[in-house]
Write a protein that binds this DNA or RNA. Sequence first.
DNA 1: CTGTTAGCGCATTCAT
DNA 2: ATGAATGCGCTAACAG
Lengths: 325, 325
Amino acid sequence: MHDVAREAGVSQMTVSRVMRSAGYISKDVRKEVVTAARKIGYVHNRLAGGNASYDNPIVGVVVPTMQNRVFTEVLSGINDALDESGLRPVFGVSEYSPETEEDLVFDLLSWRPRGLILPGLEHTDSLRKIIAQTGVRVAEIMDTDGDPISACFGFSQIRAGQEMARHLIERGHRTFGYVGSQGGLDLRATKRFEAFAKVIREAGAQIVATETSEDASSMEVGRTITNRILQRDGRPDAIYFANDDMAAGGLMHCLAEGISTPDEIALAGFNGLAFLSALPRLVTTTVTPRYDIGLAAARWLMEPEDHPGVNRVEIPARLRIGQTT
Amino acid sequence: MHDVAREAGVSQMTVSRVMRSAGYISKDVRKEVVTAARKIGYVHNRLAGGNASYDNPIVGVVVPTMQNRVFTEVLSGINDALDESGLRPVFGVSEYSPETEEDLVFDLLSWRPRGLILPGLEHTDSLRKIIAQTGVRVAEIMDTDGDPISACFGFSQIRAGQEMARHLIERGHRTFGYVGSQGGLDLRATKRFEAFAKVIREAGAQIVATETSEDASSMEVGRTITNRILQRDGRPDAIYFANDDMAAGGLMHCLAEGISTPDEIALAGFNGLAFLSALPRLVTTTVTPRYDIGLAAARWLMEPEDHPGVNRVEIPARLRIGQTT
DNA sequence: CTGTTAGCGCATTCAT
DNA sequence: ATGAATGCGCTAACAG
């Protein structure tokens, strides 16, 4: 910066102002500085700036997995929102482990981010303590059933589960299977299923099969588990899948075996991923606003102050009835 | 850090060493420092450290899109490799635009990254100039047909296209369709197709339909375009898709319409995404080592020095013959 | 194994 | 609208 200043015949401080578009700079001086910078190949060091101003152009993001489109779409929304102000997300992957999440948050805090985006409302006590000590603002996403640290953005997982249960009951189904993944580590999927199961039982119907794979969710896993459930005695009327990938796998199994949906078996997924609409039959699902949640959370973190009262932003998910229920 | 030092009764420099696990520190002192840090809730500021040492724990990454699993898998490989050394990727999305890529690189350089990971070997001249001026090491990925700036990691797109063409010719197909996306902005897909087309023509066969969607690739797009191609007079024997999503869309169209593959129409994709194996028929494709490419590129950037001679690392893609050709 | 000194590249604050 | 002095939180280099 000093070199640029000399080249342009101004002070280092003026160069700093030009680089940040801060304060008042005359047109002429600005142009001279830009030219000088380009001439000597100067690239602004924003991190050193952050050191002096206590303000880095960073938001720390924890995602549970990169295997699921859901979170890459959330990340995409976050990225687009931050782009608007020249910030960048710095992310880590927790693999659905609360302890890893805790380590990650600690690490991300060493970047002095402007804020943090975390999945869900459930965190370890140490995590909460660190957050409280440092005072960073936290946007918790994908769930609104609980008390946020600062603010949460998403939808009610409980309501999503209930809604699907009511729909299936209404359609006349009486016995149900459930297919989970990640060994039950996905707490939001668990919340959803519990709410689902409660409605089912209260309607006098029942859950006759619950299978949770240890693996990450995939079409493959969905296909395998669907096969297993349908082989057993007491085949259910309908299967609720923890997400669309597995539901699509279930549909593939049915197509390959000539099992008709929803007559022989009804299938319901979760998320409303785009690829569903290219499948031979449209799977019933809950459409979640993943991109918008990322967008909203990131935008909130970019605001200068907390808006009093803004601590629970509902971005509703909605039931989409397809041809499989 | 000063406060931690006082609390632990040591110098601030000792705290710095403990935080970085650098130099020699006695067990006792280390423990005291760690305890003191925890007590007062200190979180190390790695960015200020980078300022002093000219070395930030960062690698800058440009991906063309987040809509395609391919690049999120690459990112996943990069992330895992960097995790091993406590570095983090800082990424930007170019949307397949060379100009956006250039802006992005300039922005990422303001983070003083240890290195850069860029897609492909084709870049704007200004991009190359900036790189040369700053001297950052660059890992170019997903293509090895050309001259890398520093080093490239991936496979030959040209060979991949040729291999698929030979396979289809061998199967007896004589007329071909091609389905592209992104309005042809994906230069690697274009390279691949050109190599494919050359082999086809040299074998005396021909390309009778080329359709490139302006949209991002998706099953939906693949399904639509396949339909369009099959409606026309002079229906081809086989369709080569720029990627698996679109090929899967083609398969879905055929399943829905009762068109048999490969008898009535052969289908071939590209990438070997996991979801293919859950579809009713296994689509022939080229399996690309996306995760491994990310891993290798990131690991190379983490090495202290350039290994002389390491400037083109082949991580081969391989043809996987399925049931659609 | 630990401490001292100097300074990284910027932005804040206050001056003019 | 621009500049000078000062310091952010940390690490390099060297001393002992």
